[in-house]
Nucleic acid binder design. Structure first.
Lengths: 254, 254
DNA sequence: CGAGACGTTGACCTCCTTCAAGAGAAGTGG
DNA sequence: CCACTTCTCTTGAAGGAGGTCAACGTCTCG
């Protein structure tokens, strides 16, 4: 199959589900309108009456909410291949915003296309359901991570999640991947101060779990990092239908 | 319309959406199997291969995750009228558990019923979509609450949410409602220690926002409590289609 | 090459946790 | 109905994880 605008999406879905040409075609058909965004630009702003869903195909984005006094919380990160706002159908205005963390490209999918695919009962529709389920599972994990883990655990856990997700869509190479996110943004995702994120990252580096060079992160000791994080990847639901691949390092004790 | 097993659900959906007899009938038709649970009993256990959805019609429940070292995080609370696990279709095992916080009654809805209603394009199907959307919005709010608010703000915020939700399904009376939840459970929901929950609740009482008597909570100063919490109820999406009622106390400044 | 964003490090402080002990509630059995 | 256990809540004291403030270093990009 030749190169396609939605390749990151196909790659992601293809990672764990066997989906044939028909399904690719069905997914491709909902593509919708292409938009480019600069670093810092909002894809969705709080209050928007949008009735569209999105697929990110290039760059990273983040969903966030700002409190009235300026405190900010990042809800989750979005990588190429991620679809979101799939169930925006009856929204009465977005209760949060989505911002581009890098230059990014997204397709805006009209509501009808999503709905008809959802209800079609096809495998492509199932893929959509699965995207929604996966997104919700990551929100839940975000709650646990921030609620019951220490700063060190949180950061280790987030790095492992992002590494895993980056690999799936073909970003990064083995243990190394580009993490185009400032420490302040990590802090806003994990409910920490950026000062403490800096200290904790340095701590992980001193423990020889990770190495950082500019925005490129290398996980130098997977087992140790997983052990620190208490990371298990079941919440990512990577085996939706037909498990095709398993991660190649050992899983932690637990 | 006569009294029905699913009344709390109807009451909740009827709160903000005009739904006629046809839609009630459609919703009623998916009822499924009735089950009773004792305090502390799991409705769903981590790892279950369930392919059912649920409606709670009596009692309270909570979705939670326990880490391997025993730390526990409550993800959200479920009140009568709440439906959940609507998108469990492609799940490969629950990544969390659901426990009854009181004696509780729930209906187990078979997957097909949910799917066909979802895709039917009816107003009853829309109600289901809306339930899923609302549940996700509450998860997001939980992230913000725990990530970027102080203990005092968190507790105030949670109390306001639970009060609001209890009112909607006809539990509680004006400013008073039954909060059948131990302080340890509140702590597990808010990422705090139960000791600090106790202190903070006492603090709110000293500030004359609330009064507690056994498990009954009275909000004695709504405006102050909302001010402390920074509470706005937009995330509850109470105006899904046809706004029917607005809260009768003033909304906070911002 | 300069400016502004981002990252680092130190000192100090505070919010929350942990530990501990005791007081109420609430369920259980005689 | 009362003793008994057990869970839940309260309060105090001490310690720690992480926040805030501030200054300086470093990257990146126009």
């Amino acid at each position: 199959m030749r190169r396609h605008d939605l390749d990151p999406l196909f790659r992601r879905i293809g990672w764990y589900a066997d989906i044939g040409d028909n399904e690719y075609a069905a997914l491709a058909s909902i593509k919708g309108r292409r938009e480019e965004y600069n670093f810092g630009e909002d894809l969705v702003s709080r209050g928007d009456q949008t009735t569209e869903s999105f697929v990110i195909v290039e760059g990273w984005a983040a969903r966030y909410i700002t409190l009235s006094d300026g405190r900010m919380q990042v809800l989750n990160f979005m990588l190429p291949g991620d679809m979101f706002d799939l169930q925006t159908t009856f929204s009465t205005g977005a209760d949060h915003s989505v911002v581009a963390l890098t230059r990014a490209v997204a397709f805006h999918i009209p509501q009808r296309a999503v709905l008809s695919l959802f209800s079609g009962g096809t495998r492509a529709g199932a893929a959509l359901w699965w995207c929604a389920l996966q997104e919700e599972a990551m929100l839940r994990e975000q709650i646990v991570r921030n609620g019951r883990r220490t700063a060190r655990e949180r950061i280790a856990h987030l790095l492992l999640e992002l590494h895993r997700r980056a690999l799936i869509v073909g970003e990064g190479d083995g243990d190394t991947f580009r993490l185009p996110v400032s420490q302040a943004t990590i802090a806003d995702a994990l409910g920490l101060s950026f000062v403490h994120v800096s200290r904790t990252l340095s701590g992980l580096q001193k423990s020889r779990c990770i190495e950082r060079k500019s925005k490129v992160l290398t996980i130098t000791d997977h087992l140790l990092l997983r052990d620190i994080a208490g990371f298990t990847e079941d919440y990512l639901h990577l085996d939706a239908r037909a498990p095709k691949l398993r991660f190649d390092t050992a899983v932690p004790a637990e």
